Lab assay of single mutants.
Amino acid sequence: EFTQISGYVNAFGSQRGSVLTVKVENDEGWTLVEEDFDRADYGSDPEFVAEVSSYLKRNGGIKDLTKVL
């Protein structure tokens, strides 16, 4: 089950073990991109978060400006 990723309007994530599946949706709710990120592939949590965040930004993730990150 996908849940909204904090700080984004149209990005959602689903966690299974160490694998986080993220997706970005358009205004109609269609999935634009979907990608798996395995936490085990990264040396640290900040590196993992930075990679996921960068992916979302590159692929149309819209920041939720009503929330302070």
Rank of each mutant, 00 (worst) to 15 (best):
E28Q: 11
K63E: 13
G17L: 04
N59L: 08
A11S: 02
F12S: 05
A50F: 09
R58H: 10
S44W: 03
V33H: 12
D38W: 03
S18R: 06
R16W: 07
R39I: 04
E35G: 08
T31C: 10
P46I: 14
L69N: 14
Q15S: 09
Q15D: 02
G13F: 14
L20E: 00
G61S: 05
S44M: 01
V49R: 13
I62E: 05
P46F: 15
L32M: 12
E28C: 15
G13S: 12
S14Y: 13
P46S: 15
E35Q: 14
F37Q: 00
S18E: 03
R16P: 01
L32W: 08
S53G: 09
E47Q: 07
G60F: 08
L20I: 07
G7Q: 04
T66Y: 09
D36N: 12
D38V: 02
S18A: 04
E25G: 05
A40N: 13
F37E: 00
G29H: 05
Y42S: 01
G17V: 04
R16T: 08
F37P: 01
L65A: 09
L32K: 05
A50K: 10
K23D: 00
L69G: 13
V49W: 15
A40S: 10
K63H: 08
I5H: 04
K63D: 06
S54D: 15
K23T: 08
T66N: 11
T31W: 06
G7K: 04
N10L: 03
G13Y: 13
V19M: 04
V9W: 06
Y8T: 06
G29W: 04
V52W: 08
G61I: 06
Y42E: 00
Y55A: 05
F2W: 15
D27A: 12
L69H: 13
L56K: 01
F12K: 06
L20N: 00
E35H: 15
E25Q: 15
D64C: 14
G17W: 04
T31V: 12
A40W: 07
V22F: 02
L69S: 14
K67Q: 13
F37G: 01
G60N: 03
V52C: 06
Y8F: 11
G29A: 04
S18L: 06
E25T: 15
L32I: 13
V19Q: 03
D27T: 12
V22Q: 00
W30L: 13
S54F: 08
A11I: 03
S6I: 11
I62Q: 07
E47W: 03
V19C: 07
S53C: 15
E25K: 15
V33C: 14
L56Y: 00
R58Q: 10
G61M: 06
A11G: 03
Q15F: 15
I5C: 12
Y8K: 06
F12N: 01
S44Y: 02
E35I: 12
G29D: 03
T66A: 09
F48N: 00
L32P: 03
N59W: 13
N59K: 04
L65F: 11
I62W: 04
T66V: 08
L32G: 03
G29C: 05
A40Y: 07
G61V: 12
G17R: 02
E35A: 15
E25L: 15
G61W: 05
N59S: 07
E1A: 11
D36W: 08
G29T: 02
E1W: 09
N10I: 05
F12E: 01
V9N: 06
V68C: 15
D41L: 09
D36Q: 14
L32Y: 07
T3L: 10
Y55F: 15
D41E: 07
S18H: 04
N59A: 07
Q15P: 04
D45V: 08
Y42A: 00
N26S: 10
G29S: 03
F2I: 05
A11D: 02
Y8S: 06
Q4H: 08
T21A: 03
G60S: 04
K67D: 13
T3I: 12
G60H: 05
A50S: 09
L32S: 07
A11H: 01
W30P: 03
F12R: 04
F37N: 00
G61Q: 03
E25F: 14
G43F: 08
E47K: 02
T21Y: 06
V24Y: 02
D45N: 07
E47T: 02
G43I: 09
E34W: 11
K67V: 12
K57I: 10
N26K: 04
K57G: 10
I5A: 03
G17N: 03
S53W: 11
V49E: 14
V22L: 04
A40E: 09
N10C: 13
E34R: 10
P46E: 15
G43K: 11
K57W: 08
E47G: 01
N26H: 07
D64E: 10
Y55D: 05
G13N: 02
L56R: 00
V68L: 11
F48S: 00
F2C: 09
G43N: 12
L20D: 00
Y55P: 02
F12L: 04
Y55S: 04
T21P: 00
K57A: 14
N26A: 06
S14K: 14
G17Y: 05
G43E: 10
S18I: 04
F48C: 03
V52K: 02
S54L: 09
D36A: 12
K67Y: 12
S44D: 05
N59C: 12
N10E: 02
N10A: 02
R58T: 09
W30G: 12
K57H: 12
F12C: 10
I62P: 01
V9H: 08
W30Y: 14
D45G: 07
T3D: 06
E51N: 08
V24W: 03
G7V: 04
D27S: 12
F12G: 01
S6G: 08
T66I: 08
S53H: 15
Y8N: 07
G43W: 07
V19D: 01
G13K: 10
I5D: 03
F37D: 00
K23F: 07
I5R: 03
G61F: 05
G61D: 02
A40Q: 09
S6M: 11
S44P: 01
V19A: 01
L32C: 08
N59E: 05
L20A: 00
V24F: 03
V9E: 05
R58D: 11
R39K: 04
G60C: 08
K57P: 05
S44I: 02
G7Y: 05
V22P: 00
T3R: 14
R39N: 01
W30E: 14
K23A: 04
T3K: 14
V68I: 11
L32R: 05
Q4A: 10
I62F: 07
N10S: 03
V22C: 04
G7S: 04
E51V: 15
V22E: 00
S14G: 01
F48M: 05
S14M: 14
G43D: 11
N59D: 01
G29V: 03
Y8Q: 05
I62Y: 07
F37A: 00
T21M: 04
Y42F: 11
N26Q: 05
L56C: 07
Q15A: 08
F37Y: 01
Q15L: 14
D41H: 10
G13Q: 13
D45L: 12
S6F: 11
V24S: 01
V52M: 03
N59Y: 10
D45E: 10
V52Y: 05
V33D: 05
L56D: 02
V9K: 11
D27H: 10
E28D: 11
E28K: 11
E34K: 11
L56T: 00
D41A: 09
E25V: 15
Y55E: 04
